[in-house]
Simulated assay, not measured.
Amino acid sequence: MYKWTIGLLSPSAPAILVFGLISNMINIAVFLKAGVKDNVTTLLLSLAVSDLVFLILITPSACTLVILHFDRTWSWPFDHKFIYFLPYWPAFTAYDISAFISVSLGVMRCACVAMPLKFKLVFTKARTVRIVLVLGILAVSLRVPVLTIFRIAFKTDPLTNVSTPYVAAVNRQAMSRINDVMNRGVIIWINYTIMISCVGVLSFKLAQASRIRQSITADCDQVSEKAAGGRLSPKDLQVIKAVVLVCSIFILSQLPFLVYSTNRFANPEFTSTNKKFQDLFGFFSTLSRICSYLNASLNIFVYYHYNSKYRSVFLSLLRLK
């Protein structure tokens, strides 16, 4: 099953990565051209930047896996461990930042919709920028154990007295276990629970707004003050729909990772080196990697469909080109 999964999914990785790199560069260009004037746009721009950094850093590792799958005898001009291991954990640190930003996006929009009078003026652009910086520091701090595992070391040939670099692993087992407990256990469940809650609240608000709109259409002259006060503007509705879809993409893409990380958290023997779990571990780890690439690449469709400002700027840039 593992080999079948690798054979089916690995060839799709380069195409997804290329599309993700292009789409996030487009997102950044469009948001900057449109102007970053509110907290939602600030978060979406930050999300595009962190997604782009993730895809740039993970591309060498993903391409290495594809090459090794199709030709393990490939003649490398250098040790392939340099491009596989060294950027791997920095890449997923950027992915963590994207996850935290997605959670913040859901929480902020949820708070502004559920209690607009209290939170509409709380999440300003300046405060949102500070929140993003704090989230970046938090993500790096949580990944410190695994960020310190791989490093470049040198070994000297006693015959030629020539030093050659290689990738050294320090405290790999202990640091990986800390990472499994903290990032792949506690943090991911907190993020997942918050995201599902936010999607639930925002979906309820969308359904409520739809019922109010139908009520207004049915009897324009008898709209109660309560219903009128609960109405959301078309722009608010589009923003909520976009946030719900971005959060839903995150939830679905994280599901395979959630399954195998929870198993690994509960059972430390659930690894690629254990023959008993090798195929199952390989299946979920490969699927979760592909889903992470998709999660960092698909938001462009959401923005184009639900954000009229994004769409107009995108088309203007296209015409300019």
Rank of each mutant, 00 (worst) to 15 (best):
F92A: 01
S104E: 06
I101E: 02
A94E: 01
R109I: 08
F85Y: 14
S104W: 03
A114I: 10
P87N: 13
A111V: 05
R109G: 08
F85P: 00
M115C: 14
T93N: 05
A94C: 10
R109V: 09
A99L: 11
P90I: 13
A91T: 00
M108W: 10
C112M: 14
D96S: 15
T93W: 03
A99H: 03
F92Q: 01
F85D: 00
V107Y: 08
P87E: 10
A94H: 02
A94D: 02
L86R: 05
T93I: 06
G106K: 04
A111T: 07
V107F: 09
V113N: 04
Y88S: 06
Y95V: 09
I101R: 02
G106W: 02
G106A: 09
C112H: 07
V107Q: 08
S98H: 09
V107W: 07
V113S: 08
G106M: 06
V107M: 12
S102H: 02
F100R: 03
R109A: 05
L105E: 05
A91Q: 01
Y88G: 02
C110R: 08
Y95F: 15
P87H: 11
S102W: 01
I97V: 15
V103Y: 03
P87M: 13
Y95N: 11
C110N: 09
Y95S: 13
A91V: 02
L105K: 01
S102D: 00
V107R: 08
T93M: 12
T93S: 11
M115T: 12
C110H: 06
C112V: 13
C110Y: 07
